[in-house]
Design a protein around this nucleic acid. Sequence first.
DNA 1: AATTGCATTCCAGATAATGGAATATGCAGG
DNA 2: CCTGCATATTCCATTATCTGGAATGCAATT
Lengths: 272, 272
Amino acid sequence: MQGETSAGSPAKTGQGSTGTLGKVLAVLETVVSADRPLRFSDILVLSDQPRGTLHRQLSHLVEEGMLTQDRELRYEPGLRLLKFAHRSWSKNRFRAVAQPHLRRLHEETGETVHLGVLNGTEIIYVDKVESRQTVRMESQIGNASPVYCTGLGKAALCALPPARLAEVLAALVFHRFTENTHLSVASLGSDLDAARGRGYAFDREEHEAEIRCVAAPIHDAGFDLVAAVSVTGPAYRVTMEQLEIWAAPVRRTAVAISEDVDIRLGPGGRFS
Amino acid sequence: MQGETSAGSPAKTGQGSTGTLGKVLAVLETVVSADRPLRFSDILVLSDQPRGTLHRQLSHLVEEGMLTQDRELRYEPGLRLLKFAHRSWSKNRFRAVAQPHLRRLHEETGETVHLGVLNGTEIIYVDKVESRQTVRMESQIGNASPVYCTGLGKAALCALPPARLAEVLAALVFHRFTENTHLSVASLGSDLDAARGRGYAFDREEHEAEIRCVAAPIHDAGFDLVAAVSVTGPAYRVTMEQLEIWAAPVRRTAVAISEDVDIRLGPGGRFS
DNA sequence: AATTGCATTCCAGATAATGGAATATGCAGG
DNA sequence: CCTGCATATTCCATTATCTGGAATGCAATT
């Protein structure tokens, strides 16, 4: 009953079990995911709803502040989403527990540290610590990336019990981001086996060219929460040798967070 | 038809015109606003829905990833909210246009700079620049504060055409945050008149003790977007005299952003 | 075993969502 | 000024979905 919620692929989310809510959220997701404001007819093509229905759904979303309309009638994400997210983020207990550990890891390595939570076939970035004060949420927080091409994603998969891993693997849809991106379960699988053996996973410019990282898995006692920490940097500065050196502190951090989660959040103290 | 959407008071949001969506979002807001995970019966008391209905709504929200349930059956905000917000924030065109101006203002003053958008009777923090790398979204981004006790809020109200100002004032519900908080429309009104005259508003420890700020209004040509910039700091370091000095650069920044919005986003180029 | 305090499920009836078709609106070019 | 085209918006009979009071399930507690 709580298996494959996730909101996996960008395509169709609410198949029907959530009634009208699923459909409306699918529409919302369509608009929010778009990289430009969409007009009614754009959305009509992207969604599989009939005209009248879609129009009412959009009106309701606007009226509720989840979407806004500009003067040219195009739809854009609304401010209420930000409001929701702020609360959701600032009260996330898992993040709060992990934060001091991330800080420490950042001090040891000097590079950007990320914390991501496994959500279906995606990793959602929940926190980050970086030196340059380019800063802010802009970068990553809330961003969702595929599991198969990120250090965080692969590390998280390593922590997963076999049955659940199989589910995730079966649900993957591969997309080539760089020339190193895994494009098959076979290829990904052997990488995962190696990572599981070592206790940490690499991202060898698989998601973005010139970016590398090491990541280690985090999980709570019941595997309700599966996550990962990573240290990331530009290829010119961060060699594979360097990553091997950082692997130890990254693992240590991951273990420390895992322990803290079980202690501080207690049994049944999920995250957010 | 687009008047008092807003989601004003924390109490009851969806009155019915948005059908079932409004009710579900009200439930979501209840859970997300709470400062601790809520059990079913807690929510039952807070919402005015009957048992069966509420239970189904919560199930649907969980299934869609908007909420999560921990092992003790308590409900917490889900990760999908973060995902939505990231996109909503990172694509916000108004924020992108304003950012360089905020940076410049921060360099001039050395204190924290905020950007907020008026939304009903609240100001929603959309961006911020600060020196200390305490950093990140944690602080404010996405946070919603009342208009009547914040510099940003009062500045934004100054920009409002009389008719719309009256609407907002009529909808206010006052709450005392400090001993300086305005508690009546009369008191707020004369403060606003003074601010309008000067071109900038103060927050004299009205929202939080020991915190002061100066803020100036921003708006686009059609008043579809009403916002404000501010410089904020701790009272021991930031005197009222200091604020008077910063008023000029703050106003300049506000004007520059207003102009940029009309140029760069063009007519009908709303924000988000 | 009985009780209490929950969460969860049921199902007939009420209501709001549906969706195809008609209408309105805005903007070209004739 | 009219006409045609491409949009967005509204209508309304049908029906799927939501509603909500009451019954049931499930664990702790006494």
